[in-house]
């Protein structure tokens, strides 16, 4: 089938027409729909109405709104006039403000000379002995 023949066959579809009187009714239907659209409230209107109804239930005096608005303005001015500083130095400083490590008190240790080493002669230096116990009995760390 050539393109020309194809064109002629497809063109036969133009005979498919809507029922008689359809276009007369169409205009009437169009007017009816337009009126219906006008009566149907928009989503925005519905939302505003509901919001208004909700707020009216609170019965807040009108001056309260003015007070809240003024407070909001003052707060925003205060925030603007004190620009926020960078948090990085603060974090750095905070790391130094942590609780310092407690070092246990060290008690002085007294030494005494071993009397036996004194007796054995003067070839060897005298032996010293610890006169006190160590501060704790924890086993030393092994490496």
């Amino acid at each position: 089938m050539s393109h020309e023949k194809m064109h002629r066959v497809i063109r036969l579809k133009r005979y498919e027409q809507p029922p008689e009187g359809y276009f007369d009714d169409f205009l009437r239907d169009f007017h009816r729909r337009q009126r219906a659209e006008l009566l149907k409230p928009s989503v925005r209107t519905l939302l505003m109405e509901r919001l208004h109804a909700l707020l009216s239930e609170f019965r807040v005096p009108s001056m309260a709104f003015a007070g809240a608005a003024a407070l909001a303005v003052i707060a925003s001015i205060a925030i603007i006039s004190h620009p926020a500083q960078s948090t990085a130095p603060r974090a750095f400083a905070a790391s130094y403000q942590q609780t310092p490590v407690t070092i246990p008190k060290m008690q002085p240790v007294s030494l005494r000379v071993d009397p036996q080493s004194q007796r054995s002669g003067s070839l060897f230096p005298p032996a010293y002995m610890l006169n006190a116990r160590p501060a704790n009995h924890e086993s030393p760390l092994s490496f």
Binding site: R8, V9, R11, L12, Y15, E16, Q17, P18, P19
Partner: peptide
């Protein structure tokens, strides 16, 4: 949901040929 073709289609030479 197709509309019925107009009765004039029967006289169209392209329809007869097709």
């Amino acid at each position: 949901s197709l509309n019925d073709p107009d009765s004039n289609i029967e006289n169209d030479p392209d329809f007869i040929a097709a």
